[in-house]
Amino acid sequence: MAKQEVKFEDKMKELENIISELENGEIDLDQSIEKYTRAMKLVKECNEKLKSVEEQVSKMVTEDGTIEDFEMENSQQ
């Protein structure tokens, strides 16, 4: 499995940190613009990720390590 570039959770954490920093107001204007730009990028990325998501197919890892799609029997039950 290819490792993902940055985890969603880490993006959210970074975003929350930037907002806290901005809310504290202890940074100068140039920095705040820079942070804002970064934060907006994160918001966009997170939003896109959440909205673009198709329902994932469940997988099953077999005994020998191969990954197959997993269909639940009676999933409608």
């Binding site: 969603f8 990720k49 959440l50 998501v53 198709e54 329902e55 994932q56 469940s58 997988k59 099953m60 890892v61 077999t62 990954i67 997993f70």
Partner: peptide, 10 residues
């Protein structure tokens, strides 16, 4: 959270 992938190890 449909975003999450699930891996079953039966």
């Amino acid at each position: 959270f449909p975003y999450a992938e699930t891996y079953l190890f039966p």
